[in-house]
Design a protein around this nucleic acid. Structure first.
Lengths: 139, 139
DNA sequence: CCTTTGATGTCAGTTTCCTTACACAGTAAG
DNA sequence: CTTACTGTGTAAGGAAACTGACATCAAAGG
């Protein structure tokens, strides 16, 4: 009868470790994990507002606007100066942003691949499925 | 062909949501998630040093010492004033600390139970097993 | 014996993110 | 038309954690 850690603990452990490895992997391309998440989401949903990006990356819209300003200064993201509808300022990736994202993604993919290296395909599917069930149950 | 989110994203999502629900559940007993983790670990390993607790709860030893000071002030934790061997100050739960922990644990268990409510036992085992494999692969 | 290494506690400064609050734009309901 | 109501952007302040640095102690290692 050995000690069985709660699922929540292992979840935290896995997420912390993944974040650490991602930080290491993204350091060479000068991106934080949050910035990578932002660019990644922006590619999938071009024209998203800062508030929408914030919801998708688990930060507040204040943090997201600050982050967008940095990405804007580096020329990785575009944003109009004025809104033509409402107050939302739709953000899009620049060409440079897409390039940086591609380089970052390759590095992140490697980390994720490493994380899953001990699991066969059925187990990978099961992991994704069960995690999704957890998310749904907590919402 | 629908979009399949990366495992890392769902992992982050699950962990964020779990943390949020835990915060809500622990608010009535005046504990943060980190403080709960500290007490929890302290019960399993009485006499642990702040540095050891820090390693087990994913924070720095500076943060852990600050946290311990708060728990000390509330009388939930005991710590000798001087070290009899080395510099480590072994911390232990007080009776009050054990009581608060028990109340907190009941609430946290409810959250975890809710998180897993959509999964049968085999799936729960698979989740724990696959997550553990991820942790091992990233170390 | 002395030095080095590793671990612990602590101080100071910084960063990062959040909470609170407010102003503005569109939309729906009365 | 007026009135909420929701969504967005922005600013100010605070809370929590981190990084860097230093002093101390025990246990090897030369």
């Amino acid at each position: 009868m050995e000690y069985q850690p709660p699922v929540g603990y292992v979840l935290k452990q896995a997420q912390s470790l993944l974040r650490l490895r991602m930080e290491e992997a993204l350091a060479p391309v000068q991106l934080t994990v949050s910035q990578y998440s932002c660019l990644h989401l922006l590619r999938r949903e071009p024209g998203a507002s800062a508030a929408a990006l914030a919801r998708g990356t688990f930060v507040t819209r204040q943090s997201m606007n600050a982050m967008l300003q940095l990405l804007l200064d580096r020329g990785l993201v575009q944003r109009p100066d004025t809104a033509d509808n409402g107050r939302a300022l739709p953000a899009t990736l620049t060409t440079a942003g897409a390039d940086v994202l591609a380089a970052a993604q390759a590095r992140v993919d490697e980390v994720e691949s490493r994380m899953l290296s001990g699991l066969e395909q059925p187990d990978r599917n099961a992991l994704l499925r069960t995690l999704t069930a957890c998310v749904n149950a907590l919402e």
